[in-house]
Simulated assay, not measured.
Amino acid sequence: MVFGGWALHDTYTTHQYAKASRGLITRACAGLVDADAVMRLDGGTDRVVLGGDEPRTVDFEGIPDGCVLSRVEERHGREVRIGQFTLDIKGLPQERVLHTVEDFPDEPFTTLGLGSQGDMTARTRLPDRMPLGDGRLGDYGPDDVTVVARCEQPAEAATTTLIVTATSPSTRDEAGDRPVLARLARQAAVGAAAKYGCRAQLPELPDRLPAPVVDLGPAAGDRSDSCGWYAAHLRTADGGTLPDRAAGVPLGGAAREEGCLLAVGPGATRRIHPTLGKEQRAHLDLDAVLRISSWWVRTRSYFGDDAAAFAVETPGKRIPDPVAPGTAGRLGDVLHGSATCQGRPATLTMTVPYRYRSVLGTRLDELFTAYATDAAARRGCTGLVLPPPE
């Protein structure tokens, strides 16, 4: 009977936790998301509390807006809080810096231990974003889904685009959470658009949400993804010191962002390294390149309002350097160009770490021209502006 009493007590307690959690989620996120769906993420939980260093709740008093929620678990006899769900509401064009690319960027690959014979560039830890359908609805990454509501006329504070992102840290490991997160993001975008006075027509979610592309394969061949420009370039260019691996994402004709990751595999690295000058070889230790500082290139294109919200983060500066539409240039490891697509701006970027720029030399300009020319032609852009030769 004692056991039965404890079981009833636990059931009652769980019920009370769940009831309180539903109410908290509804209040914190202003009814924009299904509370039960939020609680089911990452295998499910009955205890949800406000998360983050400073609790955030949706109040519709301005943009940006959002809510942060954590789950409570007992581990080793004590309660711990783990991120469960975050809803971010941002707007354009008033939020000028939405996309940033780092000068002196993070390595997109996991470094290898001393003496390791592994393959550093076989798999990226920072995959590019995937389009939702043709990209009109938005895009997604390993642990978040972003839905974009383009206002038919400017909404509150002259907002022309609402950007709603639903994030759950568990999604990276729980693929089944991705469709749930997508539905939550779209549901929140519909509600937020209505609340902020943004009249928008949102497409339905696609039937499938393939996992983000993390594996790099041969760059050459018949590619129809976001690295297709590079495969086409290789058909007429000498491979030489160029990357031999690529990870591209499906092309979305209306995507607000497109990315392609290129890298040099260990075999090609060992082939190229002996051809470098003596000083270069001394500076670019072969073992370090294979284990720690690989050779890679990353492109990212931004279109429409997103093109005007791009900046480059520079070491030592607290505020990123904004890049104005219609311009081109170089900011450390980042090259950028621009174009006009159906009357809207486009910002085209290519990031190449210094250690690999020194290997590519003048071929870097060749690469950027091939990438930017293809992107502009494919998206029907005019007025392509390229950075001057280095």
Rank of each mutant, 00 (worst) to 15 (best):
M1P: 09
F3L: 14
Y12H: 13
S21T: 08
I25V: 12
T26A: 13
C29Q: 06
A35E: 10
M39W: 10
G43C: 00
G43E: 03
V49D: 04
E61Y: 09
E61S: 12
G83Q: 06
K90Q: 15
R96V: 03
R96F: 01
P105D: 06
F109I: 05
G113I: 00
S116M: 00
T121H: 04
P127N: 10
R129D: 11
L132G: 09
G138W: 03
T146I: 02
Q153V: 04
P169S: 09
P169A: 10
R172Q: 12
V180N: 10
A188P: 04
R199T: 03
A200K: 02
A200V: 00
L205H: 12
L209N: 06
V214L: 09
D222H: 13
Y230E: 12
A232V: 09
R235W: 08
A237L: 08
G239L: 13
G240K: 05
L251N: 06
R256P: 02
R256G: 14
G265V: 01
T275D: 01
L276F: 07
L276Y: 06
A288L: 11
L290E: 04
L290S: 03
W295L: 08
W296K: 03
V297F: 07
D306T: 04
P315T: 04
G316M: 03
P320N: 11
D321L: 15
V323P: 03
A324E: 15
A324K: 14
V334P: 01
L335I: 01
H336Y: 15
H336G: 02
T340K: 09
A346P: 12
Y354F: 14
Y354V: 10
D365Y: 03
E366W: 02
Y371K: 07
A376Y: 07
A376H: 05
R379C: 08
C381T: 08
G383C: 06
L384W: 12
V385Y: 11
P388K: 15
